[in-house]
Computed example of a mutant assay.
Amino acid sequence: MIDWDVAARAGKRVVRAGPEVSLHEAKSAVAQLRESALAADAHVSAITKIAQPPHTAPTLVVDRAGWIDVNSESVGHLMAPLVDKLASANATSGVGKLVGSRVTGTEAGVVLGFLASRVLGQFDVFGPRGGQLLLVAPNIIDAERKLDVNPTDFRLWVCLHEVTHRLQFTAVDWIGQYMRTQIADLVDASDLDSDSLKQKIKEVAGELKDRKRSGDREPGLGIVSLAQSPQQRAIIERMTAVMSLLEGHAEYVMDAVGPSVVPSVAEIRRKFKRRRAGRSPIDRVFRKLLGLEAKMRQYAEGRKFIDGVVDEVGMDGFNRVWATPDNLPTMTELRDPALWVKRVQPLGITPGAS
């Protein structure tokens, strides 16, 4: 259904050029990012109170083309079960499949090209090679220049976020499998055929037009809203809750290090928050279509949850969330941390603990 080799080539054709840097600047940035990722391990463990486990997840400093290569392979691997199901439900001739996969591959490449110039870092957990921490050097350099912040501080700050994600998936051994199970359940619950898929895409496009006409600024779910039966909506809600938890946790760590570790952390956070809001009209439309504005809401809701729980029961109390999937917050609890604290109290949490 999608030729991911075509997607990678298309993405690299359309991706914008990175900032101009000298060879010396490029080598220096790569070396410093690797050092920052290594240094971030100890800082993340100190804040989260979770020891860094032995892991084989490497740190890769990549350019935009390299990010596209990794993600075209990773997304293709992740989507394979859904694509197989769609293919079996929409059997066409061999020629039709070949042409269709190239067309959709090109379209997927446009999306990859859009994202490749914006992503600062990522912990890729679903690729065929296992976990990899990616740091996109040209995007980090571009961001620090536009924000006019201290490069050394900013690079460590970004690494703190991504290393927190690596810790989540390597120290909490069931998180990755939990997400894979949710995705598998979502695939099993899908009943898409060609006509229903086209209809649902039209519905998403219509929703975007309606929101634009009405001035509605709520982000919506973009293409994530495709094919949502009641069963699928429940699965997506669970996935949204856990992703909000993971993103909020990483956001908390980024700022909790304080000026003793990142001297300009307050300035960076202030300017970075303004950067997230200051998108061009075209950029905002694209982000709505992809559901990326919903991801921004995940950062905010997840961070509010972490703040609320840690204020009430301390980091040790919050860390009960990693004990079992049953301890994950629901969307309702995510928006009201006190409900989560009340539910998990029988596990030994004492409100007001430090």
Rank of each mutant, 00 (worst) to 15 (best):
D3V: 06
K12M: 13
A17K: 13
V21Y: 05
A26Y: 09
L38K: 14
A39E: 14
D41K: 11
A46Y: 03
A46R: 12
K49E: 12
P53N: 09
P53C: 02
P53Y: 03
H55R: 10
A57F: 08
P58D: 00
T59R: 07
I68M: 01
V70R: 05
V99P: 00
E107Q: 10
V110W: 03
V111D: 08
G113S: 02
F114E: 04
S117I: 00
L120W: 00
F123I: 00
G131S: 01
L134S: 01
N139S: 00
R145T: 05
V149Y: 02
F154V: 03
F154G: 02
L156D: 03
C159Y: 04
H161G: 05
E162Q: 09
I175L: 15
R180D: 15
D195I: 11
Q199G: 14
R211Y: 05
D216W: 00
A227S: 13
I235D: 04
A241V: 12
V242P: 02
A256R: 12
P259N: 12
P263I: 09
V265N: 00
R270L: 10
K273H: 10
A277Y: 06
D283I: 05
L289P: 01
G302P: 06
V309I: 06
P329V: 07
R335Q: 15
P337E: 07
R343E: 07
G352E: 02
